[in-house]
Design a protein around this nucleic acid. Structure first.
Lengths: 287, 287
DNA sequence: CACAATTACGAGGGTCGTAAAAATG
DNA sequence: CATTTTTACGACCCTCGTAATTGTG
């Protein structure tokens, strides 16, 4: 009977050129390898090596066998990888979101409702999220707008409202409300992982130079010890509190307010019913 | 360690749907198969079956694993087939010929000169022989004419001269020589395996109806007990003797005489030197 | 003399089969 | 009660490692 271990051993010999070297690489003794290859030749009913008492070399048969063995062993390796990956994906809920804020609540909800599942989440553009949802890359996604498609189930999730956080000394700090254009051109502090807000910012404040921070911690330090304007939102403040010594001024542009929408395949609606119920009851309570 | 026998067992289960059935098909006991699959799940770190005490069924992981396993096992099978086939081809001399007569002598020569080699021979058209030679399908071929190509080595091998074999009562049996057209239109007896002679016959005797015999034995019986004309040649008579009670009349058309040519790759000339030498010395003796 | 491959022999791991148990329809 | 899967136990095959042999540069 041909077995995979024989093929991997054959490949090791092909790599090393010598049996003793291959045996070392395989963590077995030379005699074991020698007999194993004799057995392989026996099952194939073919000689694989030119033997010259003191050294061996693959013959034509051997070289052909090595080519095939490479493919077989590689495919066997793929089998293990793929099955493990698939199994893992079956036990993982993948969430896609257009912005970070919805994930804060969703991840905690999901981990409580489906404690046996692993959770993975990522932020992408709306088109990527929708196609990813359709391909099964995500179990559900969060978009900044509703979507009406026959196979997809969509409902409003929660609202995020953007504010400017200004130092008290800022000339506009007394305003009741502001527009993006009022601050446009000033340096502002910005986090890098803010999803679609990044695009909103660039469109509405094209003249502004953003000091982008990759680390949450760095951002908070700078937010506390600099006089730079930055954004906060109702959701951010709910989770992290109001920034100290700052004036919070709502942004009046319609783009500064979004209603996030939960989106999943209709066929997955049942699987996710617990989550959907929870979201909806929370929504009605918060009204 | 993943092994092939586990994958074949998995495939058997996928085919049978039940473990006991698969065990029977594999000629092992159910418990052995059950534990083998448990071990497979262990090495993959994944469950492959839905277990319900009394019956098992492949789950999603299992179905994916089966798909991959099919490929792996199939490729492993291919490995064995291909390597064995290649080894055999290394130990086989394949001869291609345009006609049967040259093979009679060549095969006996080759089997004596290369007693460890298997011999395979076949008759094909010239173009097929030449392309087959270039592709390595044949070690050498025999053509009815010389070929001049840079990579090929060619020399005249032996001459075959065609005769009519007529019953004494035949109206033309007293002729010193005959042409194809003299017999054209009569029924003649013909063997099926005569290579390019078949084409010669059809071109030169378009009106003749050939009674084609597939079996050498049938042909000889009919040759002996019928009054039909048939062909013989110097080579055929050297090997099988002159037909009894028959008049042998040479055919004067130039197409009735061919000089067979031996043809091999120049790169194979050295390997075949023993044979080539033998042929050449035999040729010079026969002059 | 170092190094490489093969042969000999005993030990251990793993798969196998038989027997028994548990569960289902 | 027949069928199917799993667990338990003992047997045997087979691979492995150590040691010894042979042959080469």
């Amino acid at each position: 009977m041909l077995e995979l271990y024989q093929l991997t051993q054959l490949l090791a010999i092909a790599e090393c050129g010598t049996m003793s070297g291959a045996a070392e690489q395989l963590h077995i003794s030379q005699p074991a390898l020698s007999r194993s290859m004799q057995k392989l030749e026996e099952t194939l009913q073919v000689t694989l090596f030119d033997r010259q008492k003191n050294k061996i070399q693959l013959n034509k048969n051997g070289e052909l066998a090595v080519e095939h063995a490479r493919r077989v062993v590689e495919q066997a390796h793929d089998l293990v990888e793929q099955v493990r990956y698939f199994d893992r994906s079956q036990r993982t809920i993948s969430i896609g979101s257009c912005a970070p804020a919805p994930l804060w609540e969703l991840i905690s909800m999901v981990s409580r409702l489906y404690p046996e599942m692993a959770i993975s989440s990522e932020m992408k553009d709306s088109e990527v999220l929708i196609s990813g949802l359709k391909e099964g890359l995500y179990q559900f996604v969060v978009l900044p707008n509703p979507i009406d498609e026959p196979d997809l189930y969509c409902f409003p999730f929660e609202k995020e409202q953007l504010f400017f956080s200004l130092p008290p000394a800022h000339p506009l700090s007394a305003s009741k409300e502001l527009y993006f254009k009022d601050i446009d051109g000033e340096n502002i502090l910005l986090l890098s992982q803010i999803g679609f807000w990044r695009g909103v910012c660039q469109r509405k404040m094209p003249l502004t130079h953003a000091l982008v921070q990759n680390e949450q911690e760095d951002f908070e330090t700078l937010a506390q010890f600099s006089a730079l304007p930055f954004f906060v939102s109702n959701l951010a403040m709910r989770w992290s509190g109001k920034p100290e010594n700052r004036i919070i001024i709502p942004i009046a542009d319609p783009e500064a307010t979004v209603v996030y929408h939960f989106l999943c395949k209709k066929e997955d609606k049942k699987k996710l019913s617990a989550l959907i119920e929870k979201i909806k009851t929370d929504n009605s309570e918060s009204l």
